[in-house]
Design a protein around this nucleic acid. Structure first.
Lengths: 345, 345
DNA sequence: TGACTGATTTGGAACGTTCCAATTATATGG
DNA sequence: CCATATAATTGGAACGTTCCAAATCAGTCA
């Protein structure tokens, strides 16, 4: 209704003090007399004053906004990641611009530039597939801390927070092997992301160290989603010699694989061993409960936020690369030892 | 690295024109000579100028930021809703402040006030449980359009975009009845949200019109999440006389119910009919594919964004209440006609 | 030439804050 | 009562933009 927002000078006038004093009160300065402070605070409530952070930023040119760009919010791994960041960011007194690139680099470029215009203090980016170092460079050059999370971008000289995909995948395969499997597939994902590459490398190396020859057909590409998991199973069903278990690129694919198996009357975890990657919330309650490599997305989000906050406070520091460790969480979906499985098959 | 951001006057100086001219170029005004425009644009690229939207807002006091607060991003219904909004908002040249209240009113209050300070042009809110009209009033009073989505807040005089929960639930129950069920549960949710109330009312009325007496025990409260669905099934297993089917508060609960049934060796869709609500992406690919009331979360998000954008452009308009229609999507999870079911049971 | 036109361009105030240097009020000690 | 220290307050410039009224420029016409 008010034609014009009430400003600091309005309360100054009402309180009979100068705008400087009001500003001091707003900043919680100890310089100002208690009585004055109370009077001003009362007026602030009464007049419905709202602080104009934009104006403040203009003067002191350091905002309290952190940009977060996530490639796919509908994947619960990323949603949890975002929630973890949100918690950290909020509790540090910052707010977040959260945007969704939908795996499109163009879109990502747009939102990043828009964030720049709005004066973010730092950026956390889970890059869309195909992101190049040049997409990030201008930001980093202008002194805004950037933290890459989940996926790396080759050539970008910024901080990264990645999970130990290689070790996680290797541990998962070793586990399947220890259960007696030797026809093990790798399902989901496309070769163009670093995450895929690292997990696949773990898969290969673990097979190699057990002297199990790699069957290239068993690396089944598909969208890194639930639907992709279903598709991968369909593909697999056409094979003459089928795998008895699979490591999936992520939990979404793993759930899709469960769905796909059921459509083919194979009971996941009994007729076929499945291991996922990420450990999203549902992994625990799903039936069968999903054996998966736990990445702790919320924790990772928090860590990423901490990292960017640290860099913001420290002025400018050298890029830091953190690899978070992962651990295999064994639940039901990887199934009973394979000798039992084969009897059933 | 630069001590100070390059500003409009820097390019003005470099181009030998006044800052006003540069401003005009930035706004794409037709007043400025083509040659000048080109020169300025070239300099903008060269000097790495980035527009300072904060400063601009200060002067013209209408920002291009839309606040979006969602109560639970990890629920894919809300994630999709957010993605739908994101698409609309971005393509209208706005950016979004997306925050997650985690179903906490305190947190919600914080983020809303933070958004206000940052000068949002409008707010889309999917309110946390227990939100009161007073939480929204100050915003609305100060002339910022607010659109409530998914859940209503009684007494709030702002626009709303709700789905037709009552009709959807009634249609679902009618369908179950037509399949021969008469012991039908309602699973998930707590009585303190309007959504719950409306869907439950649809459930009750549909039973009543078929002259099926309501068994209060069959309304099983639980968290509106996957884990809640599992819990609801556990509760149900203790009943002497068990339901043969259930309408779930939402798809997340429905998936949890499937999980819970499997743990009890009941095959969802065969030994027990399940209908969800929302139609999230996974509903289609899940096994069994989920029969659910389709709410089209992305579309709803888009509609909500359109509504708030309309109100922003129109200055101030009267609150508008939109009820989006829903439709029952019959897939596998509601199962075969009940006479077959009972043979199996 | 001079007036008039339309096309461009331009100072300067304004937006709401912070920050600095300077001022005023209050208390303390001699 | 003065000098001095300390506490509290203040005016005004600055931040980077927009917007307005006014100024300048280049033709054009008589």
């Amino acid at each position: 209704m008010n034609k014009t927002r009430t400003s600091i000078v309005d309360i100054a006038r009402a309180a009979g003090v100068s705008k400087s004093t009001v500003s001091l009160v707003l900043q919680g300065s100890s310089l100002v007399n208690e009585k004055t402070r109370d009077k001003v605070n009362a007026l602030i409530g009464d007049l419905g004053y709202v602080y104009n952070r934009g104006a403040a930023n203009l003067r002191q040119s350091k905002s309290k906004i952190i940009g977060i760009v996530v490639n796919d919010l509908t994947n619960s791994f990323f949603a949890e990641l975002a929630v973890g960041m949100d918690m950290m960011v909020q509790s540090a007194g910052y707010v977040q611009f959260l945007a969704h690139s939908g795996e499109s680099v163009d879109r990502q470029r747009e939102v990043i530039s828009s964030m720049r215009e709005n004066g973010i203090a730092g950026l956390i980016l889970s890059p869309a597939r195909g992101t190049e170092a040049s997409d990030i460079k201008p930001l980093a050059d202008s002194g805004i801390p950037v933290v890459l999370v989940v996926r790396n971008v080759s050539g970008a000289k910024v901080s990264t927070l990645l999970s130990d995909n290689y070790t996680g995948a290797r541990a998962a395969i070793r586990h399947l092997i220890s259960l007696g499997h030797h026809r093990i597939a790798f399902m989901g994902g496309f070769a163009d992301t670093a995450v895929f590459g690292e997990r696949l490398r773990g898969y290969r190396d673990a097979l190699a160290e057990a002297n199990i020859p790699l069957n290239e057909k068993f690396v089944i590409h598909s969208a890194p989603s639930r639907a992709g998991g279903v598709a991968a199973v369909e593909r697999m069903m056409g094979f003459a010699e089928r795998p008895t278990s699979a490591l999936c690129l992520n939990d979404a694919v793993a759930f899709g694989v469960c769905d796909g198996l059921r459509s083919n009357n194979i009971e996941p975890g009994k007729g076929f061993g499945i291991i996922g990657f990420d450990d999203v919330i549902e992994a625990k309650t799903a039936v069968p409960a999903l054996t998966t490599v736990s990445v702790d997305p919320q924790g990772m989000g928090q860590r990423a936020a901490q990292l960017v906050l640290k860099q913001i406070n420290a002025g400018q520091t050298d890029p830091e690369s953190i690899v978070t460790s992962v651990r295999l969480v064994v639940r039901q979906s990887c199934g009973a030892p394979v000798n039992q499985l084969e009897e059933l098959a």
